[in-house]
Amino acid sequence: MYADLNRRHLAVEKNRTLFVKLYPEISNLTKDNPPIASFIIRVVCSVGNRVSLIHPEITNKQLKNNDDFVWGIEVPLTGKFIIEVEFLDLKIASPDGGEPSSIWSEGCTQKQSNVTALASLGKMLSESIHTDILINASDGSIGAHRAVLAARSPVFRSMFSHDLKEKELSTVNISDMSIEACQAFFNYIYGNIQHEEFLTHRLALLQAADKYDISDLKEACHESLLEDIDAKNVLERLQNASLYQLPKLKASCMRYLVKFGKIFDIRDEFNSFLQCADREIITEIFHEVLAAWKGF
């Protein structure tokens, strides 16, 4: 016996034991983003003394196939019976990733509101809607909004709250960033940055995040820089890890150089690095080398 439950299927198999299964309709959507359900399920005999069996509440159960929820009922049931499923919540993840959210009206309304607000914020930047501050990069300018910048960065907030030159002239000079990197920085602040743009400018974004105290951007850059360490960039990343206090990146670079033996593959570059590197970094490298030698 099968019943369609809002694109969910209820299957009943009756042999010596009655098995009740709940699973989603098979589709590309449910295959890649299976629903996460919270529900109560009951079996009620419709004749006689109306025996009622209730399964304990299921919370945040991922339903991907017909084996994910199986309820075996050994109590004999005679005649007709009714199976009731009361969904307490049903969550799905968006196709572009992110945390699963409820499909109920409250969750959908909040999600739609957030998406619309973020799109509008990005439009304010891209179309220069009522901008009130001019950002001067090294080779160009961008119009922005004091309130948005102050909400995202305590440094900008302090800058606009005191009698500083930027407050008087309605400009902020960021001469250490190109216009492309500066645009990526403000795209991130306004929630409108693209992944390729982020990857292209992540070192400049790291510098800006540290300078303007935007911790979430700094952490995003930190995590991204961990993903593709190689012989061409390891020394630069080690220097940045020390400069911006990124412990995981520093440890990963040290491990790549010492434990993986890559120091020997970039001997000339490493010797040049030692000539200008911070003394603290050099000390840490040699401590790592000595520790590695003790392991042999």
Rank of each mutant, 00 (worst) to 15 (best):
E223W: 07
K218D: 08
S175N: 12
L149C: 02
N28G: 04
A144S: 15
H145K: 07
I58V: 15
A209Y: 00
L164E: 06
S120F: 04
I282D: 02
I83S: 02
S46G: 14
Y190T: 00
S224M: 04
I266K: 02
E127I: 11
D176P: 02
M159H: 04
E106W: 05
R152W: 05
E280S: 10
I54Q: 15
I26V: 06
A277S: 15
S215N: 05
K21R: 15
H162A: 15
S94G: 06
E284Q: 12
L118Q: 14
D96L: 14
H287G: 06
D132K: 10
V115P: 01
Q275N: 13
A181E: 11
S272T: 15
W293L: 03
T109H: 06
G107V: 06
L274D: 09
N136K: 15
Q110F: 13
H55C: 11
N192C: 11
I54M: 09
D213A: 15
N28A: 14
V155L: 07
I26K: 14
I214H: 07
E280N: 08
E227P: 02
H130M: 11
L203G: 04
L77E: 01
G97W: 13
S126H: 10
L169C: 09
A11V: 07
F286K: 12
E236I: 06
N66L: 13
W71T: 03
L5P: 03
S153K: 00
V234L: 11
A277V: 10
C253F: 09
I229V: 10
D67M: 05
W71F: 05
E223C: 12
V51P: 01
L249M: 06
S224A: 11
I92T: 15
D210G: 13
S215C: 12
L134I: 14
F39L: 09
L225W: 03
F87S: 10
M124G: 01
A277R: 09
G107C: 08
Q245M: 08
I103D: 03
K31F: 04
M177V: 09
G79I: 02
R42I: 01
L29C: 05
V115E: 14
L205I: 06
F273P: 00
V43R: 01
I40F: 05
I73H: 02
L235V: 02
E197D: 09
H222Q: 07
Q275R: 14
E280R: 12
